[in-house]
Design a protein around this nucleic acid. Structure first.
Length: 270
DNA sequence: AACGCGCCCTGTCCGC
DNA sequence: TGCGGACAGGGCGCGT
């Protein structure tokens, strides 16, 4: 569900809302969502002050001092800051009661999400092994060109593979390829340098715009205030099968690649 | 090593 | 109306 823009939106909300927030008590409602035992999870978080909230790939990272609380939202995870007295939201997985009048809740219908506490160094090590951040200075057409060499897989699933570039999921992969005029079916390794440049630009632009509009809500996504994202209406191909291409009017096609839907314009994307 | 696929789980929608 | 199948922003582990 949430890709880079949605996670980034949530993180920015949380940064503002949780300045120096202190966590008093943790309640694990669904132990299958966390790594390790609920007792250990509680022990390592209770009493900690949130020093900051950042994003790495599609993960929300809470700075707890020595430890990091890392949340991956899976498909339907939500992190919301509520009044402490507000009733439990549906599909509540974990609740973090703060020392002020609020609490942070994690809800997840499908429970593909994941919460984990780990030591700062362990997290840093893991983070170093992840793919490149597409909004970082280090991400250019050269990056795309270099990483895609000799890859025979189609560029769309390649773009979604977090080993190379992080944060791009099913929606923004289709959207970026449309903007770059590249067919989702071409082999990643066959991209010319020029097309790699265009793709890098398209990825950066679509992610930036989506953040500006607070992400895409198809169904489940909500930001940390419980609001939907506004980028949905600006999608050019995703979920638009049969509708006219915004550029040329050709009906948008839907195909399945690696088990995921891909949407594209067969006329504009070659 | 790289890649495709099934699976995790619950809800919704569509066709028959 | 009811039911089965397909599908949904992700990611892991398996086999080839």
């Amino acid at each position: 569900m949430p890709e880079l823009p949605e996670v980034e939106t949530i993180v920015r909300d949380l940064q503002k809302q949780l300045k120096r927030a202190e966590i008093r008590q943790v309640t694990v409602v669904r132990p299958d969502l966390i790594s390790g035992s609920p007792a250990e999870f509680k022990k390592r978080i209770e009493g900690c002050t949130v020093g900051g909230v950042t994003r790495r790939a599609k993960n929300i990272v809470f700075d707890l001092g020595e430890d990091r609380l890392v949340i991956n939202l899976g498909m339907t995870g939500r992190v919301t800051v509520l009044d402490r007295d507000a009733e439990d939201p549906p599909y509540l997985g974990v609740s973090f009661e703060l020392t002020d009048h609020r609490r942070i809740t994690y809800q997840d219908v499908r429970r593909f999400g994941h919460l984990e506490v780990l030591a700062r160094d362990d997290w840093n090590q893991r983070s170093e092994k992840m793919g490149v951040e597409p909004l970082s200075d280090g991400f250019t057409g050269d990056t795309v060109f270099r990483l895609s060499r000799k890859r025979r897989v189609a560029v769309k699933p390649w773009l979604m593979d977090q080993k190379h570039i992080v944060g791009v999921g099913n929606i923004y992969a289709s959207e970026a390829l449309f903007r770059a005029g590249i067919s989702p079916l071409v082999a990643a390794g066959r991209l010319t340098k020029k097309r790699a440049d265009a793709l890098a630009t398209a990825v950066r632009e679509v992610l930036r715009e989506a953040i500006e509009f607070r992400g895409t809500t198809l169904l489940d996504y909500r930001d940390a205030r419980g609001e939907k994202g506004e980028f949905s209406r600006r999608l050019r191909v995703y979920d638009r099968e049969g509708q006219p291409c915004v550029v040329c009017g050709t009906p948008i096609k839907r195909i399945v690649q690696s088990g995921r839907s891909t949407f594209y314009c067969p006329h504009c994307q070659k």
